[in-house]
Write a protein that binds this DNA or RNA. Sequence first.
DNA 1: TCAGTAATGAACAGCATTGTTGAGTGGTGA
DNA 2: TCACCACTCAACAATGCTGTTCATTACTGA
Lengths: 234, 234
Amino acid sequence: MPDGTAVLTMRRTRRRQDPERTRVAILEAACTLLAKDGPEGLSVSQVAQLAKVNRGTAYQHFQTREQLLEATTAWVSEKLRRAVFGDAPLSNAVATLGDAQGVAQRMAEFAMENPALGRVWLFELLASSRPASDPFWNQFKTSLERFAASDQAQPGIDVDVHAVIVLIGTLLWPIFVRADSRTAKQRRQLVERFSNEMLRLSLQGTMRPEKFPELDAHLRATRGDRPRRAGTAK
Amino acid sequence: MPDGTAVLTMRRTRRRQDPERTRVAILEAACTLLAKDGPEGLSVSQVAQLAKVNRGTAYQHFQTREQLLEATTAWVSEKLRRAVFGDAPLSNAVATLGDAQGVAQRMAEFAMENPALGRVWLFELLASSRPASDPFWNQFKTSLERFAASDQAQPGIDVDVHAVIVLIGTLLWPIFVRADSRTAKQRRQLVERFSNEMLRLSLQGTMRPEKFPELDAHLRATRGDRPRRAGTAK
DNA sequence: TCAGTAATGAACAGCATTGTTGAGTGGTGA
DNA sequence: TCACCACTCAACAATGCTGTTCATTACTGA
């Protein structure tokens, strides 16, 4: 992707004076490197180099390496949230109600088109001492809770566990299949493959109940044993 | 934390001459730090310090930082594999046949007792350019393929997708719930919670099919459309 | 056209790390 | 008892990064 200043004849371009654009360029570079090296491997020098920005400029926008890191992850989390839940500034109950499937679809598509972002978000989540405090994570879980409470859902879903399974699977699938080195068409197919399996799993599971009568009975017998409080995992 | 030279009372203990034990101590320290900082954040100095070993000793066992990293991740992958699939040196078809549920159970328990190992493995997998080449991953997928091909399984499972979902969910669940700061009893409960939801999901899915007649029909109509070749994701 | 500001470049001290070397110390087995 | 070997310790140059400062350049809006 050519950067904004990219040049008639390659004359020694000087970046246009556009603080916001510069800031984003730095964040994007940081994001790329973050996806490659993880938080501890990020250096301001490398970021500046990749962003084609003077190191001093980077320090002008972000006082310290730590702040750059913080800003980058916040930026990623917000980008992810907007892509999946729309532009509503905070969890808009009305907009996302009953839209569990749409959320899943948008998330799968976004993850496939931006594998680096998902990777960064995950890196941060894993490095964080309190994974359960991430805003995107919480909004996602909320939308899943709404679905689980509706009459469309099977009873007895453990939302915390299920949210982990679905969210992480969706974000990591593009990385496993190396989405970055795929054509647009392939990526579309891979998204559909994932969505299909997710849908199939949601509707049918994996085990034929009639082949596991004792398990099935056990499951129905113990249903509801598990406490329904959502905060258990926190 | 007192360093190795610390002093009269603790007489300057010198590590027993036991290369293998020392090697493992270093690997274990590397593993801990790897889980905390990721591959790019690992320094030989820190590893040696944590392992209570002289930095020179570390360099005696591993010529370079890169080799230490390599050795550590290989060690982790093998440990994971043995914990889940037993001590058979290579994929023993007989031993693991039809044991999908046992594999899932062992993996969930191991992950809960060793969240750091799962984290390291995942870090490496994400950093790797070819995730699909990891031995543990492949053995896991093979065992899932066997199950999917059996008559106990629902037809139409997309093994590649499903393997990602299950494996990653199992490894990350302990991290989300901060297994390291839980009591043994809590950890046991958390494993069971995960296993129960997984079982429930496998037997029942999440959506009540009768509430989604059109989706259900679509699914049954297109069943088999997807190519069954296992290598699609590679 | 001009002042304000965004961006550049270069230098700096301070620090941590890497990988290497050489001299020492002590446990262990033959 | 003795020699080998694992381990320790201290020093080394080289490298790269951090955060700061200051002088300089060039874009931009008024």
